[in-house]
Amino acid sequence: MLKDITLGQYYQADSVVHKLDPRVKLVGTIAYIVTLFMFRNLTIYLIALAFLVFTIRLSKVPVSFIVRGLKAIVILLIITALFNLFLTPGEPIVSFWRFSLTYEGIAAAFYLAIRLIFLIIGSSLMTLTTTPNQLTDGLESLMKPLNKIKVPVHEISMMMSIALRFIPILMEETDKIMKAQMARCADFESGNIIKKVKALIPLLVPLFVSSFRRANDLAMAMEARCYQGGEGRTKMKPLKYQKTDYLAYLFLLVYLIVAIVLGKFFPLHILQV
């Protein structure tokens, strides 16, 4: 299950999209998400689809790889779609017991599913083509104006990158402690929910203890290497816009305008709802 989540993974490839400045990709993703939720008609989704297909092609990430990321949300998708299908008030087509399938329900479920799927595909495309490092750098740079209202932007991004570095280490550690307790005949599987939660104590206590120790060590190591917050720091890899980045911004602008104009003035609807 955990392996299927492609959101947050990085796919190594040599493509224009990979080389784009992370800020462009972040802004692009936000613009794309905005268009998804702006209108509720078919036109906008056709345009978004065209945009997706185009960028996926450019990114050289295999479609199968991206689709795999959807597996993780299939259940969520089905449940919310079902709720929408049967619980949306409107003109009933068929009804049984307390539930009724309505035209409005079908439309709501359809749009919801499309939005969710497009949202996931779009944002995983961003994370697949951007290393976590670039991502945090990009976020830090984009959020810089927030510094003025006392948001600790540098600290937040530093925390994010440290978290990303330590996630694999802590996963490995969890596995090790779990095995060590299983070697002492601990049972993590059977029993009711209370028993299962209780069984986690021998796993969680050592994990917390070791995380605190690691945090302490790391803080000391960072101080020893002259870390004193964001002030006066230079960057080894400063973000700098290239020509392609400006082109990408231009392309995004065109996409936004087209989406707004067409979505507003030429709406297509399913089932005429």
Binding site: P132, S161, R165, R214, L218, C226
Partner: peptide, 22 residues
């Protein structure tokens, strides 16, 4: 494990000089 900050080797080595404002 507890003293490497960067997610790529070269970035970790650059961490100190970055802090010093090089």
């Amino acid at each position: 494990d507890n003293q490497i900050i960067g997610q790529v080797v070269e970035e970790d080595v650059g961490f100190g000089p970055e802090n010093m404002g090089v």
